[in-house]
Design a binder for these strands. Structure first.
Lengths: 178, 178
DNA sequence: TATGTCATGTAAATAGTTACATGATTCG
DNA sequence: CGAATCATGTAACTATTTACATGACATA
């Protein structure tokens, strides 16, 4: 489906960026719903350049070596908007090794089972705290016309997902202790 | 991480199965947290056989062609239990093209945006209904010692995840209509 | 005889991760 | 000088999907 392509085009539709900038976006903002290493980003940028979806100009940096500043082309923007409005995407259940282990948890030793759940609850609680901190950066709830609207919605989704996961783990613990 | 390997070993630890049986499990029960096509399963079974984790005997079928009935070996069982009790697995945020599009949704036409969310809400509602039907198959809540305990927990997780997603989409719609 | 299910496999392509590799500049 | 950050790239491997390929048996 070449989703990475559209993630990159979407970012470049907002403003020109270098590969390194994109990498950092994938590590921070986008991280809650998409990720990519630099080893995936740089070849994709090359490919998109060859395909005519993006172009670049050399940019001299004050700090560190020179870099390529990528911009989206008209063709790229058209392609991106088509993808964005496409109905095709169906929601596939994400693979989850933790749930797989829960499914098999009957094979665990009784005393390890509770620890297993409590350990994961702790990890998710930490993650939730981290996300809630990010939410505090918003001084107000953005309206649908503001730039930050999308950011806010996906952050909300990440928070609600963590809350739901913690709730589920707690139900599991309850059933284990019953 | 070779998670498919452990998914297969876990299934075979319960009872001997053919590749086709495994395929069907991946399509039904396991589908909420792991999936694999037959084109991935058969080569993995071959590999696991070579590695000595599983063995097979030919099984004559009443209907259709013969098949290979795979069983887990002692070495395979040991390996599986080690994986199950391993602490290493961290929860990585699953990639989600829908959330990616929500992030970029400011670029959509105003009139398309609402439809986009409502369409996805409908899809998730259908999915939730389907999962709730599966829940009805349980005549009672299994205790931690019953075989069905793991099945029940992961089904609960799938249901709660869908509920949370729908709730989130509804919040999005609210903010859009405000 | 055509469709569906049972049953198994390989090939090719895409996607993603981990490791290898280089080089500048800044700060302690 | 060593570590961190900026900056870009390739290579090798693992994982996953889609397509190709075959053949039995059942039933309409």
């Amino acid at each position: 489906m070449r989703t990475l392509k559209y993630a990159i085009l979407g970012m470049l539709a907002q403003k020109p960026m270098t590969g390194y900038d994109l990498m950092q976006e994938f590590e921070s903002t986008l991280n809650e719903f998409w990720s990519a290493n630099h080893s995936q980003i740089y070849p994709e940028l090359k490919k998109l350049t060859n395909e005519g979806s993006i172009t670049y100009t050399m940019k001299q940096s004050e700090k560190g070596p020179d870099s390529k500043l990528y911009s989206i082309t008209e063709a790229g923007e058209k392609d991106f908007l088509e993808w964005l409005n496409d109905d095709e995407d169906i929601i596939k259940t994400p693979k989850d090794p933790f749930r797989l282990r829960v499914f098999f948890s009957k094979s665990m030793k009784e005393e390890d089972r509770l620890d297993f759940f409590m350990d994961h609850r702790l990890k998710h609680r930490k993650r939730l705290k981290h996300l809630q901190k990010q939410l505090q950066k918003f001084t107000h709830i953005p309206t649908k016309d503001e730039d930050a609207f999308g950011d806010y919605l996906v952050l909300m989704s990440a928070i609600m997902r963590e809350e739901s996961t913690i709730e589920w783990i707690e139900k599991c613990i309850e059933l284990l202790e019953a």
